[in-house]
Amino acid sequence: MIRVLIADDEALVRAGLRMILEAAGDMAVVGEACDGDEAVGAAARLRPHVVLMDVRMPGTDGLSAAARVLAAPEAPKVIMLTTFDLDDHVHEALRLGAVGFLLKDTPPRDLAAAVRTVAEGQAMLSPTVIKRLIGSFVDRAPSRAESARGRLAALTAREEDVVRAVARGLSNAEIGRELGLTEATVKAHVSRVLAKLGLANRVQAAILVHDAGLG
């Protein structure tokens, strides 16, 4: 069973998320938190596999709480719950190591699929939504592009092909079909890319590609 902790200051939102996840059959909501401090404590105590963390909560907000949760040994995966008007916060959360984000109106089937994807160790990338978020930062910070391109220059041509595909939200299997590689080979390329660039996950790789203006 996938152990999930829900952190949101709205009781109705928590109840709705719990109902959706527990109906999936392979997930158990092991706890709830209504603010950031409570979320940090619950994550340490309950040891969930995945934390759904609202960005905006009273007291310690979701961003600060996510940073503390992710800094702990054997940290759970963190997915931020957000809306489009919080782009700045989501971008920072992804840089801290959160592996994705969901809009609060995400369809139930997509919510469950996202939690499964993250629990399996993959980043949850939405090809349409995440590009909108990341693209806004490329537009606002052109000086970041030069630095990002310099970092990507360390990659081989094949590694750059792979990381560009990652930035488009493709899975390893989809990248393999597009580039004529086995899924295992793609997985190895992704691991080498992350190691070379000093990145924690595929989301951070996608951000770097978009920062460079290559996505």
Score class of each variant (00 low, 15 high):
M27V: 00
A212H: 01
A72P: 13
T60E: 00
V90W: 00
D9A: 07
L152A: 05
F84C: 00
D87V: 15
E32R: 15
D105W: 03
R45L: 12
L199M: 04
T156Q: 05
L152Q: 03
V190S: 01
L111I: 13
A15P: 02
G97D: 06
A173S: 12
E22Q: 01
D88C: 00
V78L: 00
V190G: 10
R144K: 14
L103P: 01
E159L: 01
V186M: 00
A11K: 12
V186R: 01
G97S: 01
D161K: 15
A200C: 13
P76D: 02
L155C: 07
A33L: 10
G62S: 03
V30S: 07
L52I: 08
A28E: 15
M57E: 07
A212L: 10
L125R: 08
V193A: 14
G41S: 13
E183V: 07
V13K: 02
L5W: 14
A65C: 09
P142F: 05
V4G: 00
D110L: 14
L155S: 03
F137L: 00
L96P: 07
Q122S: 05
M27Q: 08
F84Q: 10
A28T: 15
V190N: 06
L181E: 04
A195M: 09
A195K: 13
R202P: 08
A173M: 05
A113T: 04
K196N: 10
E159F: 08
L111A: 06
T82Q: 06
L63K: 08
D88S: 12
A43H: 11
A112H: 11
R158S: 11
D35R: 15
A15I: 09
L70R: 08
R151E: 11
P58F: 09
A98C: 15
A145F: 01
R177M: 11
E174H: 01
V193K: 07
G215R: 14
R14F: 02
P48K: 08
D211V: 12
M80T: 07
A119F: 08
T156D: 11
I207M: 04
L208M: 03
F137H: 11
V29D: 07
A93H: 11
E38W: 04
G121Q: 07
I130D: 15
G198F: 09
D211R: 11
T83M: 11
A23I: 05
M124H: 15
K131I: 04
H91K: 02
A157L: 12
D211H: 12
L170P: 07
R192S: 01
F137K: 09
R116V: 11
L21Y: 13
D110E: 13
V55M: 07
S136P: 09
L214V: 00
V162Q: 06
L70E: 03
A141H: 14
A43I: 01
L17V: 14
H189I: 08
